[in-house]
Each structure stands twice: as structure tokens, then as C-alpha cells.
Design a protein around this nucleic acid. Structure first.
Length: 464
RNA sequence: GCGACUGUAGCUCAGUGGUAGAGCCCUCGGUUGUGGUCCGAGUUGUCGCGGGUUCGAUCCCCGUCAGUCGCCCCA
């Protein structure tokens, strides 16, 4: 008895896969992105899907619950192996890679990377557990010029605005500088009678940062209430119209230029511009905005509420949203990190990078039917097989056409012509080629879209 | 990790305490060498899984798993 057991196929949520016609568009996207990255001189690398868990950990415990650990099913108790884990981004592997090959790399090291990453999260619209990111980063030794901070979003704007299907999408790159917020929080230190101050605790700062990050979603009033609430719990009364208010109001607006930002800052004298970190942040942000003047209006804005989650960012930060639906989440983010590889090598390696959330972006356009999804096959021509004894000629004709650069599929059996045509139609192969059915007859090609059919020669034929 | 909702054919979904349905898809046919339309015929299910109530459960109850959405967090 051989009872056949069928394991019902079920997609694993958060691990997307596409039909051939969609995959073809996905590949076209990768080609497109790759071409633009390379046009700026970025070279490609690929790192393994797994890293040692300790390497991933070096960047903070925050990401812990996101990490997929990988292990053998039949592990013996005594086995001692380094714990391996799937990488959750491409920045940490890049840091490890840069440290490891430090002596063989030329700096500034400009590389792009387009790989899958994994995060153990609850899947949702636009949120996957396995997805592609397309990163560009520049890493320098000791000193990385600030104009790279402007080049990153400029390149991404070029990519995003020109991807097939993105024509009608309104997107916006939002930029801030972490030093501004950090400097502001430093300025919130509580004065003591003897003239010294008590800085806010790291936890408290983190909480305030999180609330400010939600400004667009929750609104000014709610955010102020939350910050005042957390302050009270820590024994500090910020109040609803105290020092926090003017800063939140600065965060509320998106500034289209360095000038707009300057004006807003000048008009808001209440915030502590005496703080050197804050000042530095504003100068850097102004510089970056100034460098991006050439982009269309509103493409890039300064938005002080942008902070980014990953804690290694130390300066410029980027986030990109659909203007009409910012709640969908960022489709392209990144930032500057002063010392990325410090955990792996005794060198000072500042970097700046930005990453397309490829799958998030792609799936959105796919679901909205905005992708140019077409043929189910890359073939240009279906070669009809008129009869088994004519296979050699059909095959030879296909070979000639392939040599001339066409993609040609030879039909697999001498089925009825109706059947072979149907097949070409279903796979949307644009041309059907009829080799002679009898000796001495000419070849013919049918354009499946127009229905037009003509005599043809494999050596000279061109698509109509 | 927390909360709400959902789980019937490959897909989208109807349905009833008493032997399971539609549309789409798929397969074949409508003769001789030509697709998309039309017409005809046909295949398709442990009604998510486990337990309980009942003479009898796909339907009622409990549990469990999976999915969707929201929160957290993020691309």
C-alpha cells in the first residue's frame, strides 16, 4: 500500500514569491537600480546570508528580537559551534566586511549591495520577514566629506523616480540630522542650585525621541502630552507649553530649502541654539539641503522629526515616504554613522549610506496594479514544430535566430497548430514562427498582436 | 510579544444541525496547417487541525494552528 500524502502547499506569510511575469519586472528593477548605482562608480559585493551572532550583536541589543538564528536540526549536546544568524540588514555585514578586508580595499570604499535580509516580525502590508534591500554606502578612513551625505539621496531620487511603474508616484525624501535632536535633549538638562546640571537619562531621551518620531502620526498635542507624561514620571515637569513646545513646532514643518530652515530657526528663539551639538547638526543639515537644490521642489525636505530607529546613526538621517500615504512606512532610509566598524577593527571608519526597501516598494506597486506586468515568458518567438520529422529544421532555425539575439522557444511536441498557437498566446510570446511544413515552402512569421503573417528568413528577419 | 477579526475546490467566495455549491482557472472537443471570442463536455474538496455537545457537526461550544489587520518596532 502506497498511500499518497499531499502536503497542502501554503505560502509562508512574510516570505514573498512571485509568478514569472512579476518576477520579470522584479529583475528589470534590479537591472535598473544596478545600472544607476554603477553609473556613480559604486562596485558590488555580496556577503553571506549568515553572520556570527556576536557580529550582529555588536550593534546593540535592540535588534535582538528581530534576529533569526540558524542551527542544525540534529545538534548533539556537546557540539560547540559559533551561533549563526541571518543578517537583518546589509550595513552590519558591510562593517564586518570592511574591517576584514581593510588592507585590500581602496578608500573611500563605495559599494552597493542588493540582497535578501531577514527580520522576525509580524508580517503586514509592506512588512516582510524576508525581503530585498538595495544599499549604497561610502566608507572612508578617519574623514568622510559631508557632500557624500547629499550625494546619497540625490542618487536615490534618480533611481526611485525612474523605476518602471513609479511614474505616477509622489514620493518625498525627508532628511534630518540626529545632532539637532540630541543637542536639544542635552539642553534639557536640569539645573541644580550649585550651577551644575543633571542630564536626562538615556532611557528618558530615548522615550522622547520615539514620541517625536510619531509626530506626523499622532499630532502635536498628543506628542506633547506623552512627553510631558514621561517627564512627570521621571520627576521633571516639562509642561505643555514649556521648552518642548517650540521644538515640536519646528519639527512639524517640512522645509524645502536651507533658507526656509534658517528662517524657521531664527524665528524660534526659544530653543537652545547655544548648544554646540545642535548647532553643528543645523549647519550640516543646511549644507546638505543646499547641495540638493537642483532636485525638483519638494523631492527632498528637511524634517526635524525624522530620527530613525537603528542606533548607530550619528548625523544625517534619511527617510522616504509616499506623500499621499506616509503611514505605509519608509521605502528608502539610511544615514551617517561616525564609527561603524569600530567594533571589528581598531580604525576610525565613518560612513554614510542609504537603502531602498525594495520589496516594500515593489509589492506596493504590484498590489496597486501599477507595475508594467506583461509577458509570462522572456521568449520573443515561439518556433512551431510542424511535425516530428521537421524538428531538425525548426531547431536549426531557432539556433540562427538565437545567435542573432532573439529569445526563441521551440515547441516541445508536434501538437496541433491550434494548440501551439494557444500556448504562444497564453505566454504572450509576441511572434510565432512557422518553419516550412513541406520541403521547398518558405518560412513564415505571425505577429500575434496584429495577426499579420508574412514570409521570413531567419538570417534577416526583424521584428515589425 | 499584545489585541481584534477570519479559516469551505488551484483562486474569489456562497451555503445548511441530516450524503457539498457558483464563477474563474484547468483538461478535452467543435474534422483537413493558425491563438485570443463563442458553444458543449469533464476533473477538482480530510468544509484548517484536535476534542466536546448531539442519533447525526462544515454549521453549536472549547482548545490549537494558520492568515489578515492594528499596536510595538522597522525597509
Amino acid at each position: 500500500m502506497n498511500e499518497k500524502r499531499i502536503h497542502k502547499p501554503r505560502p509562508v506569510s512574510g516570505f514573498p514569491e512571485w509568478l514569472p511575469e512579476v518576477r520579470m519586472v522584479e529583475l528589470a528593477w534590479f537591472d535598473h537600480i544596478r545600472r544607476i548605482f554603477e553609473s556613480y562608480g559604486f562596485c558590488n559585493i555580496e556577503t553571506p546570508s549568515v553572520e556570527e551572532l556576536d557580529v550582529l550583536h555588536a550593534k546593540g541589543e535592540d535588534v535582538d528580537k528581530e534576529i533569526y538564528v540558524i542551527e542544525r536540526l540534529h545538534k548533539e549536546d556537546g557540539d560547540k559551534e559559533a551561533r549563526l544568524a541571518l543578517h537583518f540588514d546589509q550595513t552590519v555585514p558591510l562593517a564586518r566586511y570592511t574591517a576584514q578586508h581593510f588592507n585590500e580595499l581602496t578608500f573611500p570604499f563605495k559599494r552597493y549591495q542588493m540582497q535578501r535580509v531577514w527580520r522576525g516580525e509580524r508580517p503586514q502590508a509592506g512588512r516582510f520577514r524576508e525581503f530585498y534591500q538595495c544599499d549604497i554606502d561610502v566608507i572612508a578612513v578617519d574623514n568622510l566629506p559631508l557632500h557624500f551625505d547629499a550625494e546619497m539621496p540625490a542618487i536615490m531620487w534618480e533611481v526611485l523616480s525612474s523605476l518602471p511603474g513609479m511614474g505616477g508616484e509622489k514620493i518625498q525624501i525627508r532628511i534630518s540630522n540626529r545632532k539637532i535632536l540630541m543637542g536639544f535633549l542635552e539642553g534639557l538638562a536640569i539645573p541644580r542650585p550649585d550651577g551644575t546640571t543633571i542630564p536626562l537619562s538615556a532611557d528618558l531621551k530615548a522615550e522622547i525621541v520615539r514620541d517625536i518620531d510619531k509626530l506626523e502620526k499622532l499630532g502635536k498635542k498628543t506628542v506633547l502630552q506623552r512627553i510631558d507624561g514621561t517627564g512627570s514620571r521621571a520627576g521633571i515637569g516639562f509642561g505643555l507649553d514649556g521648552i518642548i513646545l517650540p521644538f515640536i513646532e519646528l519639527c512639524e514643518t517640512a522645509y524645502r530649502s536651507a533658507d526656509e530652515l534658517e528662517i524657521a530657526l531664527t524665528n524660534s528663539r526659544d530653543i537652545n541654539t547655544g548648544n554646540s551639538t545642535l548647532k553643528e547638526g543645523i549647519e550640516e543639515l543646511s549644507f546638505v539641503m543646499d547641495q540638493l537644490k537642483h532636485l525638483p521642489g519638494g523631492a527632498v525636505v528637511a524634517d526635524l522629526s525624522i530620527v530613525r530607529g537603528l542606533d548607530y546613526y550619528t548625523g544625517t538621517v534619511y527617510e522616504t515616504v509616499f506623500t499621499g500615504d506616509p503611514g505605509y512606512g519608509s521605502i528608502c532610509s539610511g544615514g551617517r554613522y561616525d564609527d561603524l566598524a569600530g567594533s571589528y577593527i581598531n580604525k576610525h571608519l565613518p560612513g554614510v549610506g542609504i537603502s531602498i526597501g525594495f520589496s516594500r516598494l515593489f509589492d506596493r506597486l504590484r498590489q496597486q496594479g501599477k507595475l508594467p506586468v506583461g509577458a509570462k515568458s522572456p521568449a520573443d518567438i515561439l518556433m512551431v514544430l510542424p511535425a516530428d520529422d521537421r524538428r531538425a529544421e525548426a531547431s536549426e532555425t531557432a539556433r540562427i535566430l538565437r545567435e542573432r539575439g532573439f529569445n526563441v522557444e521551440l515547441y516541445h511536441s508536434a501538437a496541433k497548430i491550434k494548440k501551439q498557437m494557444e500556448y504562444a498566446g497564453k505566454k504572450s510570446i509576441p511572434y510565432v514562427w512557422f518553419p516550412p511544413f513541406e520541403d521547398g515552402q518558405p518560412h513564415e512569421v505571425k505577429n500575434m498582436q496584429t495577426g499579420e503573417q508574412q514570409k521570413a528568413d531567419a538570417q534577416t528577419w526583424r521584428r515589425s
